[in-house]
Structure formats: structure tokens, C-alpha cells
């Protein structure tokens, strides 16, 4: 190696990351070259300067925070995936005749859906049967044989086309693609499909106004959403996720309201306790206390987790009002 090459290796030499042969060659050169020795000293001084740079320390606390946030994001991701699948399953179930594949046709079509938009040409779904009992599903004019052609006009957007088979001799092709068509739905919030679409919006919509309206619609219906039965798990999970992780406090507040009107189970209790212990918005913490107080009172419940959380807040919350509310609630619940 020549002088220039050796000089370029000096930073790596200082890091001890040269091969034994390279290091030996550098040492031999250093013994004979004053300029490189000076360069090495200068590099050491530079290393000292940059090594003193303070850094964010990865403490157990920081790691745990990162893990908790990841856990919430993973739950959100899992629910998103599951809600998505359920919507596909449910909606395709309703509209199957509209999407039967043309068995004798040249193309085999697999249909995907896009967020917020589910299949079909708008004009096919604009009328309702009876409000409150079913979705708008007027599809009788559809002809399965023309299903393939229907995808190629109107408002349908196509994406992700993949060829499965292509036979130039016979002209037969087989492929899949995603067909995304705007859809208009009118139905009652008690309808399971409507609820699933709204759950999907709660978890996936980027627009806080849409999320708020969807949560609000579920909350407004109160107990009638479930009719005293257990809530749909996908809907409940979407509300829990919104309660625990939505960036908009208005959405979280409505999610809490909706959840408190459902049968109070372990999942809901944990979500409300999560808000009480972790939500940065003091109004949300107070709402959680009120919710726990009311539920505990109605159900004559004396739950140790609830009591402990209230005690903790009574002593350590940053906000005076939250501490006071926790104290009052604790007295009420303990009676």
C-alpha cells in the first residue's frame, strides 16, 4: 500500500478493524512516516471530541415505553387485518350472486376491496329495503355472466393485476386483480355489517372527523347496538383501540362512552383502566373515573384492579381535580 492508501486506513486502524496483515503494514508505515504519525494523533484527538457527545440513554423505562407502544400498534394492526377480513367475508357473502365468476369465461377474477370503498357500481346499491333492518342490496339486475365485463367500466378502479396462466396458443388467460368500486350504503347502526364498516373506519380512517362520527354513531345507539347481548368482538376491539390510541381526545371520549354502554367485561375494564393510568388528557382520566364509579356502583362491583388504580390516582396524579375525583370515586366504590 502506498502512503495515501495507508492514510485512508488510519481511521479504521484506530477502530481496530483492520485485518492482521493490514494492521502490520500500517504499523510499519507509521514507524517510517512522520506525517502519518501526526495524522494518527490528530485522529485520536478528533475521536476524543466526538466520543464525548451525549446520547439518549436507552433505559429500561424507554424500552418499556417503546414496547408498550409497539404492542398497541400490533393490536391495531391485527384488528385492522381481522376487521378487513370480516368485512370482505360479510359483504361478499351478501353480494355473492353479483360476483360469481363466469365459469365459462376466459378470465378468472378474484376481487379485492379498498379501504372505505367496497365493490359495486354505485347505481346498484342506492336503494334500501327497510331502514334499520338491512343494508341497501338491490343487486337483482346483475348477471353473473357479465361480471368480468362489469369490472372494466363505470367507477371501478383496478390494481395489482397478476397473471396466473397465459397460454398464447389457446388464448386462455387467468389472472387476478383488485377491483375497487365506490359504494353507497344506507342502513341502521344496529346492522352488523354497518357496524363492521364503521369499526373499520374507526381503526383505519386518517380523518378524525370520520372516526369521530363512526364512534359517535355507535355511542349514540347505546345499549341498542348490542341489545344487551355481547358486542361484536371486532366492533368492541375497534372501540378499545380508539380509546387507547386514537390521537384525538374527542374520538377517545366517544369510544369510552360507547364502550361503557356495552356489557362491562374484562377487556373493557382493562381499556378504561388504561385510560385512567396512561391517558395524558386529564378530562379523559376524569371520564374514566366516572365510568368506573358508575359501573362499579350499578354492578355492585368491588374490583381490586379498579380500587388499586383509583388509589394510585388519588395519591399521584399530576392534576388536583383528578386526584379529588379519584378520592370521591374510591369512597363511593368502597361503600
Amino acid at each position: 500500500m502506498n502512503h495515501k492508501q495507508i492514510k485512508e486506513l488510519l481511521p479504521i486502524y484506530l477502530y481496530g478493524d483492520l485485518t492482521a496483515d493490514e494492521a502490520k503494514e500500517v504499523q510499519l508505515h507509521l514507524a517510517a512516516c512522520g506525517e502519518c504519525r501526526a495524522e494518527l494523533e490528530s485522529l485520536k484527538a478528533f475521536n476524543d471530541v466526538v466520543s464525548n457527545q451525549p446520547a439518549v440513554e436507552v433505559t429500561d423505562k424507554l424500552l418499556n415505553e417503546a414496547r408498550e407502544e409497539l404492542h398497541t400498534a400490533l393490536r391495531r394492526e391485527t384488528i385492522r387485518h381481522s376487521v378487513f377480513e370480516k368485512i370482505v367475508e360479510g359483504v361478499t357473502g351478501i353480494f355473492t350472486p353479483r360476483y360469481q365468476f363466469a365459469s365459462g369465461a376466459a378470465a378468472a377474477l378474484l376481487v379485492g376491496i379498498g379501504i372505505g370503498y367496497i365493490f359495486f357500481h354505485q347505481t346498484n346499491v342506492e336503494q334500501t329495503k327497510e331502514a334499520g333492518t338491512s343494508l341497501a342490496t338491490e343487486t337483482s339486475q346483475s348477471n353473473p355472466q357479465s361480471a368480468a365485463a362489469d369490472f372494466l367500466h363505470g367507477d371501478t378502479r383496478t390494481d395489482n393485476l397478476h397473471f396466473l396462466n397465459l397460454d398464447p396458443q389457446s388464448g386462455q388467460v387467468e389472472f387476478t386483480f383488485d377491483a375497487v368500486t365506490p359504494m353507497r350504503v344506507k342502513g341502521n347502526v344496529n346492522n352488523a355489517q354497518v357496524q363492521k364498516v364503521m369499526a373499520h373506519a374507526i381503526v383505519n380512517s386518517d380523518n378524525p372527523g370520520v372516526r369521530l362520527k363512526a364512534v359517535n354513531a355507535l355511542a349514540e345507539q347505546g345499549g341498542s347496538v348490542t341489545g344487551g347481548r355481547d358486542a361484536d368482538p371486532a366492533v368492541k376491539s375497534a372501540l378499545v383501540i380508539a380509546l387507547k390510541s386514537d390521537g384525538n381526545p374527542g374520538v377517545r371520549r366517544e369510544a369510552l362512552r360507547a364502550l361503557l354502554q356495552m356489557p362491562f367485561d374484562k377487556e373493557i375494564k382493562e381499556a378504561v383502566l388504561f385510560v385512567l393510568l396512561h391517558d395524558k388528557n386529564s378530562g379523559m382520566r376524569v371520564a374514566a373515573i366516572n365510568g368506573l364509579e358508575l359501573t362499579s356502583h350499578e354492578k355492585r362491583m368491588n374490583d381490586a384492579d379498579v380500587l388499586n388504580a383509583l388509589k394510585k390516582k388519588m395519591h399521584s396524579d399530576d392534576n388536583n381535580y383528578v386526584r379529588l375525583q379519584a378520592r370521591t370515586a374510591l369512597q363511593e366504590v368502597s361503600q
Binding site: A55, V56, V58, L62, A66, E69
Partner: peptide, 15 residues
Amino acid sequence: ARYVNSSDDAKDIYQ
């Protein structure tokens, strides 16, 4: 954390 020198950004990257 070393790359962005901020705990919040580091958590974003982590996630």
C-alpha cells in the same frame, strides 16, 4: 436513539 439523538424519534423508528 444514537442515530436520531431523540427518544421520541427513536421510539418512532423502533415501532
